[in-house]
Computed example of a mutant assay.
Amino acid sequence: MSRRILLGLLAVLLLIQVFRPAKNSRPGPQPHNVTALYPAPAGVQAVLERACYDCHSNNTRYPWYTEVQPVAGWYGRQVTEGLEHGNFDEFRNLPPRRQIGFLERCIDQVTRREMPPSGYTALRREATLSVDEVQALAAWARDVQRQIRAAALPADSAGAAADRR
């Protein structure tokens, strides 16, 4: 009886290998990436690449274990969910207020240690952020927010003030 159960489980495991989620891979330059307009210091760029971009960019790195189901499905769902919350490679396509909001959520979640999530850092220890890395990332994001406000929002405010007259 136990042999049949083991063979059945093996058959199911082999069968699910056929079903794979689509991969998030668009290599090459990403002209709409936030750092294309707002360059990040080298340390912050390194943090973005190793701790953020797998789930929040157009080019996810897939380790070997994501080639095996059910891990591939789980990892694919994590990437899809991450992209729904924000994509650094599509940042410049967002209106200024949404850019500021995206960065505010990044600052909030990183400083509260909600990002990167513990399930991700359990598999990718290198994605764990030090206190200094969290502070540097938050400082850069706040600086980008200031630049966006200075460049885009005064025009919005002037237009709104003119409408009130």
Score class of each variant (00 low, 15 high):
Val144His: 08
Leu129Pro: 03
Ala127Gly: 06
Asn87Gly: 01
Ala42Ile: 06
Thr80Met: 12
Glu90Asn: 10
Pro70Glu: 14
Ile5Trp: 13
Ala36Gln: 08
Pro116Asp: 05
Val131Ala: 14
Arg3Gln: 08
Ala40Ile: 03
Arg50His: 09
Asn93Trp: 04
Ala161Val: 15
Met1Phe: 11
Ala46Gln: 13
Leu103Val: 01
Gly119Lys: 12
Ile16Leu: 10
Pro29Gln: 09
Asp54Trp: 03
Val110Ser: 04
Val79Cys: 00
Pro70Gly: 12
Val34Leu: 13
Gly73Cys: 06
Glu90Lys: 11
Gln135Phe: 08
Ala138Glu: 09
Thr121Glu: 04
Thr66Met: 08
Val79Thr: 04
Cys52Thr: 02
Trp64Lys: 15
Gly28Asn: 00
Gln145Asn: 06
Thr128Phe: 06
Thr60Lys: 02
Thr66Trp: 06
Gly28Phe: 03
Pro21Trp: 00
Met115Thr: 07
Arg97Thr: 01
Pro117Gly: 12
Gln17Met: 07
Pro41Val: 02
Gly119Thr: 10
Leu10Gly: 15
Trp64Leu: 14
Pro116Phe: 09
Asp89Lys: 02
Lys23Gln: 11
Asp54Lys: 01
Pro31Arg: 09
Thr121Arg: 07
Ala136Glu: 05
Arg77Trp: 14
Trp74Glu: 09
Thr121Phe: 05
Pro41Leu: 05
Ala72Pro: 06
Val131Ser: 13
Arg113Thr: 05
Gly28Ser: 01
Gly73Gln: 11
Ala139Ser: 13
Phe88Ser: 03
Val34Asp: 00
His85Gln: 14
Ala158Asp: 11
Gly119Gln: 14
Val71Asn: 06
Pro116Lys: 13
Tyr38Ile: 01
Pro21Arg: 02
Ser157Asn: 07
Cys52Ser: 02
Ala11Arg: 04
Gly119Arg: 14
Asp54Gln: 08
Pro27Tyr: 04
Thr66Ile: 07
Ile107Ser: 07
Pro96Met: 02
Ala42Ser: 12
Tyr120Met: 15
Ile148Val: 12
Leu153Ile: 11
Ala46Ser: 14
Ala151Tyr: 06
Gly76Asp: 04
Leu94Ser: 01
Ser130Trp: 10
Leu123Gln: 14
Asn24Gly: 00
Gln145His: 00
Gln45Arg: 14
Ala136Lys: 10
Asn87Thr: 01
Glu67Gln: 15
Pro117Thr: 14
Val47Ala: 07
Leu129Gly: 08
Ala161Gly: 03
Arg112Ser: 15
Ala127Val: 09
His32Asp: 10
Leu9Ile: 13
Met1Asp: 13
Gln135Asp: 11
Trp74Phe: 15
Ala36Ser: 03
Leu48Ile: 10
Asp89Ser: 08
Val47Glu: 03
Gln99Met: 05
Tyr53Gly: 00
Ile5Arg: 11
Leu13Cys: 12
Ala40Gly: 04
Ile107Val: 15
Gln45Ala: 13
Ile5Gly: 12
Val144Met: 08
Leu9Thr: 12
Glu114Arg: 14
Ala162Gln: 11
Arg149Met: 12
Thr80Ser: 13
Glu114Ile: 10
Leu7Phe: 10
Thr128Arg: 14
Ser57Lys: 00
Pro117Asn: 15
Pro63Cys: 11
Val68Tyr: 13
Gly86Tyr: 02
Thr35Asn: 05
Gly101Asn: 07
His32Val: 04
Asp163Trp: 08
